[in-house]
Structure formats: structure tokens, C-alpha cells
Design a binder for these strands. Structure first.
Lengths: 363, 363
DNA sequence: TATCACCACGCAAAGGTTTGCGTAACAGGA
DNA sequence: TCCTGTTACGCAAACCTTTGCGTGGTGATA
């Protein structure tokens, strides 16, 4: 456990009676260093297992080789998978990843972004908290020359590179599917609509009704405070307490969905026989849930990859002014057992196709 | 998007006609700087929103303020939660977290550990791949003076600080519970026993049988290649193909459990009426699964916190030789609906108690 | 007036690496 | 012998901050 100081280029230089610059050049195979000197240097470097000090290099190059990513939380499958995609992309480009979570706290977000700037990260990927509606801290980052990519959660009115998933489209697909399969009274358990993503899902729900000439009933929409399974339980309870006739539920995500099925079951409703249910996210457990969840799959890993790619592109074209990119990825409906085709349904529904995914599981 | 160079201490010094050292001292409220100079410096620092360059500081202090954590994968709930605990602990001590995943690849593990050493992380937390059975790369790290804490997955024969969960005990509790509730033919879907954790769960299963004088039948144990839900499906299928009489299954984790229930259901078995099922991990969905999963809860967040704490303690006592710590956290059995008390069971089972967790959910 | 204390600040080194520029030594050609 | 070219390397700056030590100036005391 001896605190043996890391050997530096100077140590090697001294031992060989040459200058540090010679050692540096020798290690980089610079042409103006004799073969003999190179051999000596390399031999010693290996003997002491010399490793260049990246801190010194970063200071010199004004590049830390670190990319920061700030997410609301890392324990959710969604963000963990995004991070995974980002990780794979940036590490192949030789960057390291500094991961932080804001815990949906705006103050934390400000503080952590500040920290990242101090640590001189080369770029930042961020999915803002749902409380974030002022963007000075983003501006500050921009001003210091650190590129910024916003993903998953949009910041309307703030200009930056953005990579989003079309939640509106996913919700529209889901609800239209429910309508086409014969559902007339479709409830929606909405998430906190302060989050643009959740607002979009609500809009998709509404417009799918509108476009199909189904009246929208506000009594079928319940706004949840959060988007965990526990929130799902609460929202579903609230919904049932209204004693409205319901033949389908579109839940804001899978976590809420499973909380919802729990409540439905306890109240004697069968899914999908009495009520069709569609979630959002295609979580890892959705396929093996009982009944397996119909849901909307999102290209989460791809979201991470693309966001990282855009940041790397910024590095490559450093300094060159270029317009911000705005990328929107398409989600896909995955139909499983938690939704059914109602017999008296007249309109036929053309099933979407996603390779590798079982389309219909009828138990 | 102007690349406005970050203002440094020298810029301020020049503008004020003083030396950089004076500026530095002024900013740190050093007593030997006049109040007037301090005011001037602080005013300018605020005007240009000066931020000290952490890279330069790191180089000076030989401390990067970064802790590395290397896990097999970050998308699993288990590791994401560990990371969350680590994050909270280290950030409160002013450290940043560099998160990497090995993807269960030994070569990646070696490479990433090397990278971390290069980046001069101040310490490393690691949960090794299940292929890791040589430890030179750990030794190398130690030799450079970077403290190392191993968590969750033990490395038998390698000396280091370690924080583990007593999987043996958890498995023992689970299986003993099944026995006491009247099960006689308890199957086990084991994970890859190359992972010490899974080996321990198997051992707990075996010893609970032994201690309760129940014969062990090798035909009731199936060894899975992995530990995902898909692996669970495969293993459960294999188990049923043996046409053995079974009244309970102890699965190596919850993911495998839900794959297993899927297969059981498709083959006409009811859980828990025909077969009791107990998993491991208490994943987020376990409570809302149908039937809700009896499982073994692990203090995952605490695992992260404690591992980080031990590393921070090493920093505090830097240089001082002290013996390695070996901490083992206790898991707790959580009984839900997927297991039942068999009527003809004579022995009564004393339920364990965990505050805040519903102990028995009988539908 | 000489001595002393104290105030307020500057110098320079240290941390490790890279790189433009300069140069000593030597060989070869005229 | 002088000039030119090449080889093989060293010097010092640059990146930014901190800190031990030194110092010029001022006012007070003996």
C-alpha cells in the first residue's frame, strides 16, 4: 500500500540524462529522436509502467475528455438505458462520462451544471427536471463555450441541439388503436403535465379522439402527481371512484399501468376482458407481466446514441457556427395481452409491424 | 457561441495591476490582503463570473476529486440503485462520480480500470464481472496508490475492502420459509454459479434443506445461463420438461421469477395455489406483479452508501496502514402473494418483520 | 536616528506534459 | 577552410492555481 508516486516523464528523463521533452517525443515516436534513445526511453517507461498524467494533459489541451450527463434519476429503466447508449457512443470516441442526477430538483440541476462547468467537461447532455422553466443556467453554460444537448424533455423557447421522442405520436397510435379495436370510453391517466413529454401524451390522447369523432369526456381523464406505480394506484383509485363507465385505459407509462392493473383487479375488473390497458415505455417486465402489457416502445438506447453523436459532431466542428439540430425519434406500438379486440367492433385495425416483437398474444 | 476563453486569475490580476497570487489570496480571504484590494478583486471576479479551473487545482493537489465506479451494467435496477447510493454519499463529500460499465467483459474491466488510473481517480468502487478470476489489474491499481472497494460480488482470495450482501442468508430465509409453510418439493432456478452471489443462493437453498432434514433432489435444481427474464423462461421450461412433482420454486432473482410465472401459467399451473414462488431482489415491479412477488429484499441503496463511505474513510486515513474492512449486509424476506401456506402444514412459521413493508398480502 | 514590527504584496516554484524554436555537433561538398 | 545541411536533442513557455518566503514601505518605539 506504499504511496509510490506515479513515475513521470521527468523521472525517466533524469534517469537517462536527457530532457523531459526528449522523453515525450520518444514516447510519441517523433522522427527527430534517435532509435537508440527511443529504445532506452521505452524500456524504462515499461519498467516503471509509466502512464501519462491526463490531468496535466487536460490542462494543456483545454480538453478534459469528459462529457457530463445530467438526468432526473438514474434508477429508472428509461434513463439508465439512455445512459447506456450514450456511454457506448462516447467511450468509442475516447471520452469518459460524468453522470449526475438532479432528482427533479431545479436547484440541484443548477448546482450540478455549475460543477460540471468547473470541472471543465467538454460537453453536456441534459434531460431537465420538470420544474425547469428558466434557462439562465443553460445560457451560462453556453457562454463558457460548453456545447449542450437536450434530450427527452424539451425546453420550449430555449435554443439548443435537441433529441426527443415523439410522445404525441406514440400516444396517438395507442389511443387510435384502442378506438379501432372498439373501445368507446377510454380513460387516460396522465402524468404531471408540467413535463412536456406527458403533456404530449395527453395531446395525443385528445387528438386521437378528435380525429375519430369520439367525444372527449373530462371525467375520464385523471391527472396524477407523479409517474410511479404508487401514483398509478392512487390515480386509478381516483378514477374508479368516479363510477364512470370505462372500457379502456391509456396510462402515461408502464409503471403507472401496473399500479392500475393492481387496483382494477382488486375491484373485480378483468384486464383485458373488461378493460383494455395500454401503457408506455415497454419496460423490461412489460412482456412478462400478467397480462403482458400492450405498450409503446421507445428507441431509448438510440436516443442516447444519437444525443451523444450530436454532441461529438459539435466537437468535430468546434467553432463553426451551425444551426441547432432538432431530432425526433418515432416510438412504436407493441400489442400484447392487456388489450383486446372488442367483438362488435366493425372497423378493422391494421396492425403496425415491428420486427422481432410478437404482435398479438391472445391467451 | 463565441469561444470566450474562461477568465483566469491572471486576467483579473493584470486588469488590476496586481499579481496572480494576490488575486488568489483575495478570493480566499487571506488576512494579509487589504480590504480595498479584496473588494476590487471580488468585484472583478463577479463581473467576469470567474470560476477556478479545477483541472489546474487537481494537478496541484494530486487529487482529481473524482471517484470511479465500475459495474457490470447500469441498466439493472440493482446497480442503478447502488450507484444512486454511492452518488449521494460521495457528492455530499464533494466528489464527482465517473461511472463505467464492463458489460461482464473481463477485457473491458481491465481497460476501464486502466483508464481510471490514467484519469487519476482518487478511488475506485468495483463490482467485478463474473468472469473475473485473476486480479492483477486490481493489484496494479493498488500499487499506484488508488484505494479500491469491492462490492456485491466477492473476489475470493483477493484482499481489499469489501461490502457484500449475505445472499446465503437471504436464500436460506426464503427456502426455510417455503419449508415451514409446508412445501416439500422445492425447485431452485439457479443463476450462473460462477458468480459468487448466485453460488451463495444455491448454498442457502441446499443448507436450508439439510438443516430441516429435507432430502435434496438434484432433479429439482436447474442451472440457468443468465439471470434475465428470458433466461427464466428457458430454465422454467427445462424444469417442467423433467416432469417432476413440484410445490414451490425459489428463483435466483425477480427477473427470472417473472419469466418463470409466465411459463407456469402457460402450462396451466397457478401461482401460488399449485406452486409457491419466491424471488430475490424486490424489484420495483415485484409489489405490483400478479400475483405480487414474495421475494428477498436487499439493502441496495445502503450497499452503495456504505461502500462509498468506506472509500471516503480510506481517503481520510490516507497512508495509515489499516486492515481491510469486510462488511456483510443482511437481506430480508418479503412475503407477498406468490407464496401460500399449505393447509396440512403443521409447523407454524414465525413471520419476519420489516418495518414499512406489508408482510402478507393474501388475495 | 536606529531598530523593530507589521502591513500588503510579489516572486517563483510546483504539478506534468507538449511543442515551437534554437543550437551544438558532425559530416560532406566546394 | 568555409559554408550548408542534417541529426538529435535542450530550453522555455504554456496551461492555471496555490503557497512559502522574501521585501519594500510605513509608522512607532527606544
Amino acid at each position: 500500500m506504499q504511496q509510490t508516486r506515479q513515475t513521470t516523464i521527468v523521472d525517466i528523463a533524469n534517469q537517462l540524462g536527457v530532457s523531459p521533452s526528449t522523453v515525450s517525443r520518444a514516447l510519441h515516436d517523433h522522427p527527430s529522436i534517435s532509435a537508440k534513445t527511443k529504445r532506452n526511453v521505452v524500456r524504462l517507461a515499461e519498467k516503471y509502467s509509466y502512464q501519462p498524467n491526463l490531468l496535466a494533459l487536460s490542462l494543456l489541451n483545454k480538453r478534459s475528455g469528459v462529457i457530463g450527463i445530467l438526468v432526473p434519476e438514474i434508477t429508472s429503466y428509461f434513463f439508465a438505458t439512455v445512459i447506456s447508449g450514450v456511454q457506448d457512443m462516447v467511450s468509442s470516441a475516447g471520452y469518459k462520462l460524468l453522470i449526475c442526477q438532479s432528482g427533479e430538483s431545479f436547484e440541484e440541476e443548477e448546482k450540478l451544471l455549475q460543477d460540471m462547468a468547473l470541472s471543465r467537461v467538454d460537453g453536456v447532455l441534459i434531460s431537465p427536471t420538470f420544474r425547469t422553466n428558466s434557462f439562465q443556467h443553460f445560457e451560462r453554460l453556453k457562454k463558457t463555450g460548453i456545447p449542450l444537448v437536450i434530450f427527452d424533455r424539451d425546453c420550449p423557447g430555449f435554443e439548443a441541439d435537441k433529441v426527443l421522442v415523439d410522445s404525441y405520436d406514440g400516444a396517438y397510435q395507442a389511443v387510435e388503436y384502442l378506438i379501432k379495436t372498439g373501445c368507446k370510453r377510454i380513460a387516460h391517466i396522465a402524468g404531471p403535465i408540467a413535463i412536456p413529454t406527458f403533456k404530449q401524451r395527453l395531446d395525443g390522447y385528445l387528438n386521437a379522439h378528435y380525429d375519430n369523432n369520439i367525444p372527449i369526456r373530462s371525467e375520464l381523464i385523471v391527472y396524477s402527481n407523479g409517474f410511479s406505480s404508487d401514483d398509478g394506484v392512487e390515480a386509478a383509485t381516483q378514477l374508479l371512484d368516479r363510477h364512470e363507465k370505462i372500457d379502456a385505459i391509456f396510462a402515461v407509462n408502464d409503471a403507472v399501468s401496473i399500479g392500475t392493473t393492481h387496483v382494477l383487479r382488486e375491484n373485480g375488473y378483468r384486464v383485458p376482458d373488461d378493460i383494455s390497458l395500454v401503457g408506455f415505455d415497454d419496460e423490461s417486465y412489460a412482456q412478462y407481466y400478467f397480462p403482458s402489457l400492450s405498450t409503446v416502445w421507445q428507441p431509448v438506447y438510440e436516443l442516447g446514441m444519437l444525443s451523444a453523436k450530436i454532441l461529438l459532431d459539435r466537437f468535430a466542428n468546434r467553432g463553426q457556427l451551425q444551426s441547432y439540430r432538432y431530432e425526433v425519434l418515432k416510438p412504436e406500438l407493441v400489442i400484447r395481452e392487456s388489450s383486446r379486440i372488442i367483438a362488435e367492433s366493425t372497423s378493422s385495425y391494421a396492425l403496425p409491424n415491428r420486427p422481432g416483437t410478437p404482435l398479438v398474444h391472445q391467451a
